[in-house]
């Protein structure tokens, strides 16, 4: 009798464990915005900040159109910063930070994943170096 009770108890426990196991991290990896994306977002945000600091420090000179380097955490990925001048808006750039990484097998496997953040940046000293014509002489 006691043995039968224990067996029943084990079966009930096993049945209850199954749905709980799916709630642990290996199940969460398959969501649309996972931990990897979150890491990529944080890294892209940091890259944007660094790029903007660099632009201000160098006086907006020699801004790279496309600068790609291996991922800073040593993984098989790449980080890219680019400054694209906006046509018709001299002194305004679109700054883009792209983080690329190789998706792990648990995430559906194979292929590159990428995450991109963009921001506009204007030349902060623009008004100090502006140019405009003068009315001739001192007349209105």
């Amino acid at each position: 009798m006691a043995l039968a009770e224990v067996l029943i108890a084990v079966l009930v426990l096993a049945a209850a464990m199954v749905p709980v196991l799916f709630l642990f991290p290996s199940g969460a990896r398959r969501s649309a915005f996972g931990e990897a994306h979150l890491r990529a977002h944080l890294r892209a945000r940091a890259l944007l900040g660094q790029a903007i600091d660099m632009a201000v420090r160098t006086g907006f000179r020699d801004l790279p159109e496309n600068q790609s380097v291996p991922a800073s955490d040593g993984s098989k990925g790449r980080e890219t910063i680019s400054f694209e001048p906006v046509r018709g808006f001299e002194g305004l750039w679109v700054v883009t930070a792209v983080v690329e990484w190789a998706a792990p097998l648990e995430d559906g496997g194979g292929g590159e994943r990428s995450y991109q953040l963009q921001r506009l940046l204007h030349k902060s000293e623009q008004s100090l170096g502006a140019d405009w014509p003068l009315v001739a002489g001192g007349e209105r």
Partner: peptide, 28 residues
């Protein structure tokens, strides 16, 4: 993360406003 993205877009909007104000302030 989405909040960061929203803030980045807001910053972009402000950057464009600043650019336009600084340009127009020197254009007769």
């Amino acid at each position: 993360a989405w909040g960061d993205v929203a803030l980045a877009v807001a910053e972009s909007a402000v950057e464009e406003l600043m650019h336009r104000v600084k340009s127009d302030a020197s254009d007769p």
